[in-house]
Amino acid sequence: MSGILVLCDHAGGAFKPTANELLTLAGTLGGPVFAAVLGDAPAATLGGLGASKVFQAAGSFGDYAGAATVDALEAILAASGASVLLAPGTYVAHDALPRLAARLGAGMATDCSSVAMVDGKLVGTRDWFAGRAQGQVTVNTTPAIASVAPNSGPKSESTGAEAEVVSVSWEAKTPGLEVLETLAPSTDGVDLNTADVVIAGGRSLKSKENFDGVIRGLASTLRAGVGASRAATDAGIADHSEQVGQTGVTVAPSLYIAAGISGAIQHLAGMRTSKVIVAINTDSGAPIFEHATYGIVGDLFEVCPAIAEAVQALD
């Protein structure tokens, strides 16, 4: 067995950015690169991103059916003969993927910031204690499974090449769930997990109205994802799903703006690998400034609208 199989997520007829990131990464690891596509998507186009062959499973995966994902991926992995499976570090990595690993008796490295092949084995670098330590997981099994955190690596330009698409049949055997309803997030729809820019607010916003006005206002100008500190979500100012930190979401955007967030360990754990961090806080002694690329000591109620204005003046 050899080759690297990449689970390529898609929505609304287009592949997600993680598909490009993972195929680009797989291309650096040596050996043929295969793509796994669950459901209806323009599979052949993945050839332009380096997939030599695409294995596509038919079925309804539109609403993320965890059980079907396990069964279909199992069939695709077998059909491809790949020795490594890479998948995005999103819900699937916390639900279907470890279940598949258990079925196959395979080792798995979850939500790696990078992966490499060392002496023929998959080695993933990942966080322990929510980012307060890093370490490496060497996966000793074949197949080896790893999920890679979104935004962890570069993307490629498509060469326009088309890949051969192999249709894979699969059998439902995992007890499944019936999806009754999908509830859209309260935000304007920019995915916090994969957003390139994130703006997060803390408890000093004081009310949901202020949070919506100041933080979501600037987010819509920057086309940013919206995050919040635990203090803010516990106070009901922002939604639980928006909590960035050890007990919430971990993000790694190009730009993270922390407004009125002091920078407790628990929050830093969720955003410390952001490329550029901007801190806005009235307290010049706030720990967040030690981690910030740029800091403004000032009142977020003045600074955030001023940033929105300055951004709008750019074009």
Binding site: G107, T138, N140, T293, E302
Partner: peptide, 26 residues
């Protein structure tokens, strides 16, 4: 099935800078 090791503290970020001035200028 897996072996874990090479633990280390997270890499330190380079020192940042404070931007001075009134809100609009900053």
């Amino acid at each position: 099935r897996t072996a874990e090791g090479s633990f280390a503290p997270p890499p330190k970020r380079p020192a940042g800078r404070i931007i001075e001035g009134e809100a609009a200028d900053a």
